[in-house]
Design a protein around this nucleic acid. Structure first.
Lengths: 343, 343
DNA sequence: CTGAAAGCGCTTACAG
DNA sequence: CTGAAAGCGCTTACAG
């Protein structure tokens, strides 16, 4: 195939380019570009002719070529461990909404181990995204090094504990847990257990455990009634937690759970045992999932601002790209104790 | 600033390019490119030197430039109405996983109205994505026209009813609902109501309603006990459905719900009324959410294969890009009735 | 307000 | 196995 034939074939497949529009409108490609990007720099008549030609040809600007030339992709990448978790789903949704309002797109990677995270970061960097949003503050040294070296805006979420690679948005998981357990103590519960997930020390839950322990220690109470079960089992783990903790402390009167799923499982199990909640056992959750309000009794829990976190992360990145690094680079989005009847 | 100074500044910011690597390795840029893309075409020594130079410089290939030159972005876009719905979250996760296994990335847009969907499609097309995954088969004419004209692989999901813009993967929502309601009839329930969402005829739920009505009509039973409530209310809508349907048919003995959330709400309300399920009222759900197995009694429901759908959609697109349009362009991923104790 | 020139960082098809 | 040339479709900075 001759080069010319090839070009023709390619072009018929490829579709309309800026020069095609320029030609039909009888202007230069530059004026077409300016019509879209700097309309003020173009006379109304030129603009008009460009728009008409573009419409006639069904022209769609190739944003990729624009990115290569301008250095701005208008895409931000995000990595979350899972979408099954509504916290992360909420964050992604908040991110997407705010990005969309500013004409940017979201590239999403699901990575629940350091290796996948590294690959995702490489893929993002290779595409020269405008910014990257990470979940948590625990990343492999490679990831941190890569990100720093690339000098791309990065936001780490769900934590307020630096040092951050670049920027951070989160809230204090420690404070939230501490305050919740402190409230349980104030209400008179004395033998409070902790239900968490394997492996112990899982960074996503370790802060809550520390808050739990600190509140009990401060009150002079036992802080070692700990249970760690499989996360994959869903509600069933709540039952397992109850069984395990009761076997080491039959008079257990309170349970602090690292997720509402766990708390719901425990409450379901209390119902089966015929135990009144909170009279026989007080149960507190974490996350304020849909189910929290529907349980009987309503679950007292911590509301985590996933959506707000996503939208603030987007704001931070957009600001970095548009006006340089923002002065406030760490944002506390707070948390909220939702008081219902389970404690 | 002189052009040279500008270039130097830009280049220090921009980072390492293929020519930098070529220069350090003492080979041509072509050989660097081939080292990554066609290793077989390069001698082992050259390869070696390229890798060393790349590592020394911290070279990250600019995939964007590659896309512009080659026409393949290795990105596929997906549009879902929401991520709060675990069906869609599951599909996205399946999509992302399969894409990731093939070295592709996912661009995600959340769009719950035709206008946002159109904007997302334009953004995707403008970036020359390798394929686009849509939710449902109801799209504005503009969207369909744009997509057809762009000649990009498109997969529509959650339905088996054509005509498709290009390809489809789904299962029969009608069959699933029909089979479930048929089973309720076989078990002896005679006054079965339907709990759905406003507005009636919502395409995401209309098929299930048709299946419901068909099963009852075939059995010679009333098929007009219908309730449509607000989706935003969560479990509460299940209670509202029960109240409304009971007021028009006090002897209601069965309830088919378009989501497990609705079914759970109804079961919670039965508990509050002291009504045994299924003896006083049989309840069937749809979706097999986490909560279905944890309710008392366990909820009989339809399991929808969101994850499988996402991963099949990815396969379809990858096949289209790599080996041309697949011969099988509509895939039925099936559904499953999960029988527990609520009917 | 307008446009010719150079460049973004790769890949393609080709000749050696 | 190797590399010079042309091109992907835009934008940048500039001169008119």
């Amino acid at each position: 195939m001759t080069r010319l034939a090839k070009r023709a074939a390619a072009s018929s497949k490829r579709g309309v380019t800026m020069s095609d529009v320029a030609q039909l409108a009888g202007v230069s490609p530059m004026s077409v570009s300016n019509t879209y990007k700097q309309p003020a720099k173009v006379s109304p008549e030129t603009r008009q002719r460009v728009f008409e030609a573009a419409a006639k040809l069904g022209y769609l600007p190739n944003l990729l070529a624009g990115t290569l030339a301008s250095g701005r992709s208008r895409i931000v990448g995000a990595i979350v461990p899972s979408l099954r978790n509504s916290n992360f789903a909420g964050m992604i949704q908040g991110l997407e909404e705010t990005l969309g309002q500013h004409g940017c797109e979201l590239m999403l990677a699901v990575a629940d181990d350091p290796e996948r995270e590294l690959r995702a970061v490489q893929a993002f960097l290779g595409r020269r995204l405008d910014g990257i949003v990470l979940t948590g503050i625990e990343h492999s040294p490679e990831v941190a090094a890569l990100l720093r070296r690339a000098d791309v805006p990065v936001v780490e979420t769900w934590s307020l504990n630096g040092p951050f690679i670049d920027m951070g948005v989160g809230f204090s998981l420690f404070d939230a847990a501490f305050e919740m357990v402190q409230m349980m103590v104030q209400k008179g519960y004395r033998r409070i257990g902790f239900a968490g997930y394997n492996p112990p020390g899982n960074p996503r839950f370790a802060e809550r455990q520390k808050g739990f322990e600190a509140a009990l220690r401060q009150a002079g109470l036992r802080d070692d009634l700990l249970y760690f079960g499989p996360e994959a089992l869903g509600f069933a783990t709540g039952r397992l937690a109850l069984e395990a903790l009761l076997s080491s402390e039959p008079k257990l009167d309170g349970l602090f759970c690292v997720t509402d799923v766990l708390a719901a499982g425990a409450i379901f199990d209390c119902a089966r045992r015929g135990w009144p909640v909170p009279d026989r056992l007080a149960v507190a959750g974490y996350g304020d999932y849909d189910i929290a309000a529907e349980l009987t009794p309503g679950l007292t829990t911590v509301r985590t601002p996933g959506h707000a976190m996503g939208s603030r992360a987007a704001t931070l990145i957009l600001a970095s790209v548009e006006t340089g690094r923002p002065s406030e680079r760490i944002i506390d989005v707070g948390y909220e104790l939702v008081i219902r009847d389970s404690i």
